[in-house]
């Protein structure tokens, strides 16, 4: 009786069915089932979707939304490591650090410092203006081909500012230098340039060595290497640094080693393990972002 009584009371509340409806519609699961945000709660303005005209026979647009100039601009700065503000900040920081290092190595005059800083400032302003001008002409609903073509143009503009691995092998920087770097180098003597180049090579070697050691310890963890084997493999790693960049690459290299060599370095158990692939996981693994200078 009490249940019936309660139902009678509840049905007398006029807002109750409306409340249930709102809660049901507002729930994400309902939205997922229908594939839409409920109209009652949708604050987005509907975008005009232009279907490609089949009579024209053109390629369909690549995406279902319009690429506003702001989106292209965000993409350009995103490629450079964040937003416009963070890129400006990181560019200044990079210039300052480079100058500080050169000052430490061979000294740098205040004039050169001012000149390089001013060039970097101007270069940033010019880049910003160029990006704004270019994205204003960007296709709003690009096809795959149009998107690629436009991205190429954008890339040509931003690639000199793309942060690359500072300690990669010298001479393998496949990017054009930024103007401030050119100005800096044109103001340095040949002797100073050689000192700087040597320092860069040594820093690069230091960093690569640490990376090799880390890969070596990963191999050791899987195979269970003893101290003697660690010493031998460290020498092998130093002789062939390219293969010791990652666990996967070195695993392939070691597995492909001639049998006689494998017998020399590894025990039978280790050789059997080496013949099997590495274990794969879907878990998250810690990564440190050391290869991307800001």
């Amino acid at each position: 009786m009490s249940i019936l009584h309660s139902f009678r009371l509840l049905t007398q509340i006029p807002c109750y069915p409306a409340l249930i409806l709102v809660v049901f519609l507002a729930h994400p699961s309902t939205a997922q089932q229908t594939g839409k945000i409920p109209n009652a709660l949708n604050r987005n303005q509907p975008e005009a979707v232009e279907d490609p005209d089949p009579k024209k026979g053109g390629d369909p647009p690549m995406m279902q939304f319009e690429m506003e100039p702001e989106r292209w601009s965000e993409m350009a700065y995103g490629t450079l490591g964040g937003t416009r503000a963070t890129f400006e900040q990181s560019l200044r920081r990079r210039v300052r650090k480079t100058l500080n290092r050169i000052e430490q190595l061979c000294g740098i005059s205040e004039d050169v410092r001012i000149k390089v800083n001013a060039t970097a400032d101007l270069e940033f302003q010019r880049l910003d203006a160029d990006i704004t001008a270019l994205v204003s002409e960007a296709p709003r609903r690009p096809t795959q081909q149009q998107y690629q073509d436009f991205y190429q143009k954008l890339w040509a503009l931003i690639s000199p500012f793309q942060p690359t691995a500072q300690w990669g092998p010298p001479g393998q920087e496949n990017r054009n230098k930024a103007l401030w770097e050119k100005v800096l180098h044109s103001n340095l003597s040949e002797d100073h340039q050689e000192i700087i180049s040597n320092d860069q090579r040594q820093r690069s070697e230091y960093n690569n060595r640490v990376q090799r050691l880390e890969t070596l310890l990963k191999v050791s963890r899987v195979l269970g290497l003893d101290s003697k084997q660690l010493g031998i493999l460290e020498k092998i790693a130093d002789a062939n640094p390219a293969a010791w960049i990652s666990l996967e690459s070195v695993w392939t290299t070691l597995a492909a080693m001639p049998e006689s060599q494998q017998r020399e370095y590894f025990t039978e158990t280790q050789r059997i393990r080496l013949s099997r692939p590495l274990e794969y996981t879907n878990d998250l693994q810690p990564v440190m972002n050391w290869n991307q200078p800001e």
Binding site: K218, L223, L247, E248, E279, D283, Q285, N289
Partner: peptide
Amino acid sequence: ASQVTEHFMGGGFVDMP
């Protein structure tokens, strides 16, 4: 702002015996 960043990446080979 110039400190190293650490993050977790999903999936991949593990160095576990």
